[in-house]
Design a protein around this nucleic acid. Structure first.
Lengths: 151, 151
DNA sequence: ACCGATCGTTGATTCATTCCAACGATTTAA
DNA sequence: TTAAATCGTTGGAATGAATCAACGATCGGT
């Protein structure tokens, strides 16, 4: 008389598990660049916005300032981005990605694409779009609590 | 002439991000029990199989023995499970969940259901099933590499 | 009775991540 | 000129997870 279990694993748990798995795969895919999804996100942001204040990056990424410092140190050490003082306000740093950074970002995106190709090999284009739109309708939780986004 | 970007965030990254978010929400949902998804998984396993050898648990959960010890310690401390020596082989431990354990598992499952209800509030039953089946067709990667499953 | 293997356990180490306090340099306001 | 606020930075503390070595107890084979 018991209601039969909804399905094998609960939908939420399934999503959590597979999400973590995908996360790991993507991390591996970009491993040889020495960078992580975090670095990628900063690069993407820099690519989209061009030269930006470090402060502005902080807001959109919503990470601790000290974390961003670390990321930028990494990028700068590899010559992928550059920090320079804002002449208008010498407290600020203006961050800009280099040509190498642009190139590396392209490589990262390719690696991610390749990983995705494997992960979603069994889905055709329509199904991928479907999955995409379904996912986008999740997580619209009432309170927009700070979601520590690693990605 | 560029192919337009598939959609806002790459599908893989979207899945990774939302998966992490869902993971956090579920963790929060079961936080007041003092237990984690790891504990839940052991409880589920115990619930499914009844009395089991600790060894058998290790295989199905594929975690380090020391980790399982910690989990079982937690469960036993709260009276949710019990370890006793296997009389047939006194090296072995036989693990069994208690009535309290069964009750707590039920509470956990309810909490997870509640979290899922929020997370998937915008999806009707068909859409949830669809999402479920789509997710199940992901991650069937060539090499079944050990996926450190927190869930 | 002995030797090697097995089971569960303990403990240490490593690593990544998050969070927070405090600082120097600089700007802004009084 | 002084005081307060801001920006980026440094460092430490706390957490959680993963991995590994080694141990006592026990079993099996010889």
């Amino acid at each position: 008389m018991d209601a039969q279990p909804v399905a094998q694993p609960r939908l939420g748990l399934l999503l959590a598990r597979h999400g973590q798995f995908v996360s790991i795969q993507i991390r591996k895919a970009m491993a040889d660049t020495g960078l992580t999804p975090r670095h990628r996100e900063v690069l993407v942001e820099l690519s989209d916005r061009g030269a930006t204040s470090q402060q502005a990056l902080l807001e959109t990424l919503s990470v601790d300032p000290s974390v961003l410092v670390g990321i930028l140190n990494d990028l700068e050490r590899q010559g992928l981005a550059e920090r320079r003082r804002d002449p208008a306000d010498r407290r600020r740093h203006i961050v800009e990605m280099s040509a190498d950074g642009c190139e590396v970002l392209r490589r990262i995106e390719d690696a991610v694409s390749q990983a995705e190709a494997q992960l979603f090999a069994d889905l055709d284009t329509d199904e991928r779009d479907l999955l995409h739109t379904l996912l986008n309708r999740v997580c619209l939780v009432p309170e927009e609590e700070a979601c520590t986004e690693t990605f």
